[in-house]
Design a protein around this nucleic acid. Structure first.
Lengths: 359, 359
DNA sequence: TTGCTTTCTGCAATCGATTGCACATTTCCC
DNA sequence: GGGAAATGTGCAATCGATTGCAGAAAGCAA
């Protein structure tokens, strides 16, 4: 039944793959004709009957194109690389999924790699992607001070940024990100509307655009309401992880009092919940918490998180489309897409509680 | 500053990549010598001084190997493919992460693709992986009746299965899975110990080994305590999704009464929670629920899920190691690794409540 | 110095598909 | 019916690295 049965008298192992030359022999034409007949783009250069014969021969021999051989000649691998900073953060799988689906539909394979937020590892991975001759690269790992884009430029690899931008003036690369500045404004407006006046900000790691934009958005949103941003407790977490969030929140709690905190990212919120619990404070009842990303499952945690929803799938899709377009025509102007987020109100926010215990 | 500055008088765009021939010219030796000097494995065939000179020339020209050209000749792409059934299910990212990390350490790139549980799509993706000449394939998407392994055999691609096995007698392929049969037994034993006697099973989709093994494990665990498995309410969900879990749980609730349910997978538990809430029943207090996988974040849902923890990272790591070993020596005997799971008791289970409302 | 290894390097073929160019048909038009 | 244009195929070079084989150089013994 299995096609791997070995034929007696022949060496074991699968039959060597048929090449275009085998197909040519089988069909009684030249290899170049086979190539033209089998490639949809050049199929028209060949007589209908010949194309038919070649297709049948190829089918009979079980011929499969070799992306390596074709790529060597055409200098295209039909492969796209994507670098994510932290695969285990659940905001990335939906993005990755959208990217992979769109690219697969266009016949591209996706080389995925995880930088673990490590610039050295990122550089190594970009080199390896270059070695594999990826036709384009999607970077979800952008951060200030890494030479990622320089590397891409040196290798001549078209690139787009996802989710994170580069600091301004860092060369022209298209990016698809969220309106982080405006998004955090939604959260702050919501807290203000609930009556909060002493609002803290648990910011993301410095050097990452999402952190910086949300921080400035936070300050601007306060200022717009006549509040003094410099009076607000603000602290940067060391990383976008629950553990870093817990540590930073504990530190915030040790400072001046506040009744609500706008957190830069949902992952940090998980730690924030832990820190509040450890301090004997209840989320919402004592301290309101807002997140950012609406990552999967935060609607099911306790209490369900009020957060700023971003468009995961649209982000991946658009970035992939832009990359393909720029690969086809490198002269295309670079684009800077900001997807608009929306606030999702759940149970982690409430009006300020004057009786809240002081930690 | 940027290395992509174009030199006046030269055509724009990045400089064409240096080839081994360029390095040879620069170093004053033959291309074959360059190849030997630059390849760690053959480095010894060349005089120290020459190797030095070649290395410097390569450095100066910014030479990068072309995996395509090398692969064409050696028939190895230094690329491994991995097929997951549903990237958005959070049990896969940790597995993927472990695989990617281990493979990257060995110099392999990882081609990732999502089958969306669709056998046709899976076949297409395997073909594409073959086109890209992957050196090996990791399948987390195994299901009965798909020709995935036949395809791999036909293309001569070494493969290992992760998380899901093939039905018995389906050819020899190494697999790294959980002891699903024993794992669900832990959950059932826990429920029995709490005093439950009428225990239902919300099973996974038919045809998937995890579902079938957990089902038989559930029945055997009941039988071992002298309970009649045929009396237990059992229903298969249509897919490993929250929505399918909710639908199946609603259907179970319409049947004979039970005080606890052992659910085949954490994703289904999310839907189970929803269905119970819709029926006016409280998790734990009215109906105890156990899951399987201990996927990320189920410790933070409400109430925290009692579940069977599997070894995500170890699974990915071991599977990758086995694949590499079998690639190096195809004659190696096939292995069938079962990782042992453990029960994690949280808040979704409690002694049976005689006063629970009847839905 | 001769003769025989041992070491190192160069030569050229090779992997499999693509493509510019040339040649051979066929078609068309006057 | 002859010449020009259009169309279809074959030829051979090419992409960039690897590797079996052969020859040159160096080392060593006699």
């Amino acid at each position: 039944m299995s096609s791997s049965d070995s034929i007696p008298g022949l060496p074991p192992g699968p039959a060597p793959r048929a090449t275009i030359a085998d197909v040519a022999r089988e069909a009684g034409v030249h290899a170049s004709t086979v190539s033209r007949a089998l490639n949809p783009a050049t199929r028209g250069m060949v007589t209908e009957g010949v194309a038919q014969r070649v297709a049948e021969a190829a089918e009979r021999l079980g011929w499969r194109p070799s992306a390596l051989a074709a790529g060597l000649r055409t200098r295209k691998s039909r492969t796209i690389g994507i670098l994510v900073p932290d695969l285990v953060n659940p905001i990335f799988p939906p993005i990755l999924h959208a990217v992979e689906t769109l690219l697969a539909g266009q016949g591209y394979a996706t080389l995925m790699a995880n930088t673990a937020n490590d610039p050295a590892r990122e550089a190594l991975l970009i080199e390896r992607m270059a070695t594999h001759l990826v036709d384009g690269l999607m970077l979800a790992s952008a951060a200030a001070g890494t030479g990622a884009l320089d590397l891409c430029a040196r290798f001549g690899i078209p690139a787009v940024l996802i989710n994170r931008r580069m600091p301004a003036g860092c060369g022209a690369t298209s990016a698809v990100t969220n309106d982080d500045h405006g998004g955090i404004g939604l959260a702050v407006a919501h807290l203000l509307a609930l009556g909060h006046r002493r609002i803290a900000h648990l910011a993301g790691p410095e050097g990452i655009s999402t952190a910086m934009d949300r921080l400035s958005g936070f300050r601007d949103a306060l200022a717009a309401q006549g509040l003094d941003p410099d009076a607000a407790p603000i602290l940067h977490a060391g990383a976008y992880t629950a553990a870093a969030g817990q540590a930073a929140m504990a530190a915030l709690l040790a400072g001046p009092r506040f009744t609500a905190v706008a957190v830069a990212n949902d992952m940090l919120c998980l730690g924030t919940y832990d820190a509040l619990a450890a301090a004997g404070l209840r989320v919402a009842a004592d301290v309101s918490v807002t997140g950012f990303n609406d990552m999967p499952f935060v609607d099911r945690i306790c209490p369900a998180l009020t957060t700023v929803r971003i468009q995961h799938a649209a982000m991946g899709r658009q970035a992939a489309e832009i990359l393909l377009a720029e690969m086809a025509d490198p002269a295309l102007p670079r684009r800077d897409i900001r997807l608009v987020p929306e606030l999702v109100c759940r149970a982690s926010t409430a009006p300020p509680n004057p009786d809240a215990p002081c930690p």
